[in-house]
Simulated assay, not measured.
Amino acid sequence: MEFIYISVLIIAIAFAVLVIYLTRTLRAATRTLDNVANTMSSLEKQLNGVTKETEQLLHKSNRLAEDIQHKSESLNSVFVSVKDLGDSLQGVNRSVRNVSENVSKQAERQSEQIGQAVQWGNVAIDLYRKWKVTKQQYENTNKEEK
């Protein structure tokens, strides 16, 4: 009988040790779960802050995109005006080129006439000089006779 009492005592001690270790394990698990809960709470707060910042950033990005779109549309009219100006300048250049070509053609056609006119002008100048020299000689001869 004594053997039974000793066996029951060993079982009771083993059960007590098991309960002690089980209690310690449960307390450690409780502390771990408390830490996880605190971490999750902190993470939730941080996530809320990040979410708010992300929303603000998204709103700012949308406003910036709208502003860029508006300014782009404003610049479109400027580019259209610059294109029109370029087209006008091309037209002016064509007109100047045509006038220049016409002047060149007319100058080529009339170059012979211009050359003849210059020759006649030279002949007229030579005749005038000769007449002047002859006149002066005549006046000098008349002065000597008197």
Results as ranks from 00 to 15, higher is better:
Met1Ser: 15
Glu2Lys: 15
Phe3Gln: 12
Phe3Tyr: 10
Phe3His: 11
Tyr5Met: 11
Tyr5Thr: 09
Tyr5Gly: 10
Ile6Asp: 13
Ile10Val: 14
Ile10Ser: 08
Ile20Glu: 09
Ile20Gln: 11
Leu22Pro: 02
Thr23Asp: 09
Thr25Leu: 14
Ala29His: 15
Arg31Asp: 12
Leu33Pro: 05
Val36Leu: 07
Asn38Phe: 13
Met40Trp: 09
Ser42Arg: 15
Lys45Ile: 07
Asn48Met: 07
Gly49His: 14
Val50Ser: 07
Lys52Gly: 07
Thr54Val: 08
Thr54Cys: 09
Thr54Gly: 14
Thr54Arg: 10
Thr54Lys: 07
Glu55Leu: 10
Gln56Ser: 12
Gln56Asp: 15
Leu57Ile: 08
Leu58Tyr: 11
Leu58Arg: 11
Leu58Pro: 03
His59Thr: 10
Ser61Tyr: 06
Asn62Pro: 03
Asn62Lys: 09
Arg63Glu: 07
Leu64Gln: 07
Ala65Gly: 00
Asp67Trp: 01
Asp67Gln: 03
Ile68Pro: 00
Ile68Thr: 00
Gln69Thr: 04
Gln69Ile: 01
Ser72Val: 00
Ser72Pro: 00
Leu75Trp: 00
Asn76Met: 05
Ser77Ala: 06
Val78Thr: 05
Phe79Val: 08
Leu85Asp: 15
Asp87Phe: 06
Leu89Trp: 10
Leu89Ala: 15
Gln90Cys: 11
Gly91Thr: 03
Arg94Met: 02
Ser95Asn: 05
Arg97Asn: 12
Arg97Phe: 14
Asn98Lys: 04
Asn98Ile: 02
Asn98Ser: 05
Val99Cys: 02
Glu101Gly: 03
Ser104His: 01
Ser104Lys: 03
Lys105Ala: 04
Lys105Thr: 04
Gln106Ala: 02
Gln106Pro: 00
Glu108Ser: 01
Gln110Ser: 02
Ser111Thr: 01
Glu112Cys: 01
Glu112Tyr: 03
Gln113Val: 04
Ile114Arg: 00
Gly115Thr: 04
Gly115Val: 01
Ala117Thr: 04
Ala117Arg: 05
Gln119Cys: 00
Gly121Ile: 00
Asn122Tyr: 02
Asn122Leu: 01
Asn122Gln: 03
Asn122Met: 01
Ala124Asp: 03
Ala124Leu: 03
Asp126His: 09
Leu127Ser: 05
Leu127Ile: 06
Tyr128Phe: 10
Arg129Leu: 12
Lys132Phe: 09
Val133Trp: 11
Thr134Ile: 14
Thr134Val: 12
Gln136Val: 12
Gln136Lys: 12
Gln136Cys: 13
Tyr138Met: 14
Tyr138Trp: 12
Glu139Cys: 12
Asn140Glu: 13
Asn142Ser: 13
Asn142Trp: 14
Lys143Ile: 09
Lys143Glu: 11
Glu145Cys: 15
